[in-house]
């Protein structure tokens, strides 16, 4: 198989963001702002899940080699 372009692998570092975001409990441990009646602590994790989808999809698209996978 052809060697992977090293440039594209740097995109993987972006994955640190969705891996760390759910762990920021000192920041997320609050009631306000409430969304649809749900305290921030709880809906923050919903936001993290959506964020993970966006970032992982972006990294996947950016690191696909030449559209062959």
């Amino acid at each position: 198989m052809a060697p992977r372009a090293p440039r594209s692998r740097h995109w993987q570092w972006l994955l640190i963001l969705p891996a760390v975001a759910p762990l920021l409990t000192p920041f997320a441990n609050r009631i306000e702002p409430v969304l649809l009646g749900v305290p921030f602590f709880f809906w923050y994790q919903f936001a993290c899940a959506l964020f993970a989808i966006v970032v992982i999809s972006a990294v996947h698209l950016a690191t696909r080699d030449g559209g062959h996978d």
Binding site: Q12, L15, I16, P18, A19, A21, P22, L23, T25, N29, F41, F42, Q45, C48, A49, A52, V55, I56, V59, H60
Partner: peptide
């Protein structure tokens, strides 16, 4: 209460780890 919610962040961080 809140401590029981640990399963959610735990599930989320497995996804970027899965990718790699």
């Amino acid at each position: 209460g809140a401590i029981g919610y640990f399963a959610v962040p735990f599930a989320i961080i497995t996804t970027p780890l899965t990718f790699v």
